[in-house]
């Protein structure tokens, strides 16, 4: 910490940069409170004077089912991602399977396939198997956003667990399964949190799969809720932005509660579609 005036000067500059960067976020919140009659004022209201909760009332009236669906899809994606990726990572990190290197390479490549293309393949499959427009179908598709990343995160983390720990378990007579379940998995708590956070966030934010595989579904996620909104009543921007604010809550909560895990995920070469 530098002493005196110079440090404060930097803090001031930093606050200005951050404010500029976050202006769109502020604007979203501001518009969400703006009354319909003020929406097209020129110049616009810079602060929500004469603010209204009309937009939020709209959201609570119409968007709750969408939010619930997103919650289910998000949690389902987390569960599926963990079940598939954690055991595989344990194997890749500790059991040295033949061909493991090739698998790791394939996972890196898998991360680079554009979502639109996966969506088209899924559409063809779902149409013939009847999974189209269902929540499980969406969970399956969304998990493809997270699984390769999850395996990479778990593998790196599990490679770093001290050998003595797993050795001790083995001396006590634990098999590979027991070692994984009672030693490796509990120790990997941080990796589990990072993976769960990102899997949830990506599933919650997904638009490509939702708009292609759940277009006509009875249960649609919040991203489609907003999208229909933009299409249907172009005038009600306070309601649209109120929905956007509520859809941003998980991201904000994650950032506040789990900042260090988020930063770890980003530097891990995190993917965002």
């Amino acid at each position: 910490m530098r002493a005196g005036g110079r440090g404060w000067w930097h803090t001031g500059l930093g606050v200005v940069f951050t404010a500029l960067m976050l202006f769109p976020v502020y604007w979203m919140i501001n518009v969400s409170f703006t009354r319909d009659q003020d929406m097209r004022r020129s110049p616009p209201n810079w602060f929500p004077v004469n603010g209204t909760l009309e937009g939020y009332r709209e959201v609570l009236g119409r968007q709750l089912p969408y939010l619930a669906t997103s919650m289910v899809v998000g949690l389902g994606t987390v569960a599926l991602t963990l079940v598939v990726s954690a055991p595989a990572a344990y194997s890749l990190a500790r059991l040295r399977p033949r061909g493991g290197g090739v698998l790791g390479f394939l996972l890196l490549v898998a991360q680079m396939i554009p979502g639109v293309i996966m969506a088209m393949g899924f559409y063809a499959i779902y149409l013939s198997t009847g999974v189209l427009n269902t929540v499980p179908g969406l969970i399956l598709a969304d998990s493809t956003l997270a699984v390769p990343f999850a395996v990479l995160i778990f593998t790196t983390f599990m490679s770093g667990i001290p050998e003595e720990l797993t050795q001790a378990a083995r001396v006590d007579g634990a098999g590979a399964l027991r070692t994984f379940w009672s030693v490796v998995l509990p120790v990997s708590r941080n990796a589990v949190i990072t993976v769960s956070l990102f899997a949830f966030l990506w599933a919650w934010s997904d638009f490509v799969f939702a708009s292609t595989l759940d277009q006509g579904g009875d249960h649609q996620p919040i991203t489609l809720g907003i999208y229909h909104y933009i299409g249907n009543n172009n005038q009600q921007w306070n309601a649209i932005m109120a929905t956007a604010v509520i859809a941003s809550i998980p991201a904000t909560v994650l950032l506040v509660l789990a900042q260090r895990y988020v930063a770890a995920g980003v530097t891990a070469g995190a993917v965002k579609d």
Binding site: T18, M21, L22, P24, V25, M28, L201, W204, S205, F207, I222, T223, I226, Y227, A244, A247, S248, A251, T252, L254, L255, Q259, V262, A263, V266, K272, D273
Partner: peptide
Amino acid sequence: ALFLVPWLLPLIV
């Protein structure tokens, strides 16, 4: 940390 907000928001938002 605040700079991460735009990156974490759903793209539709």
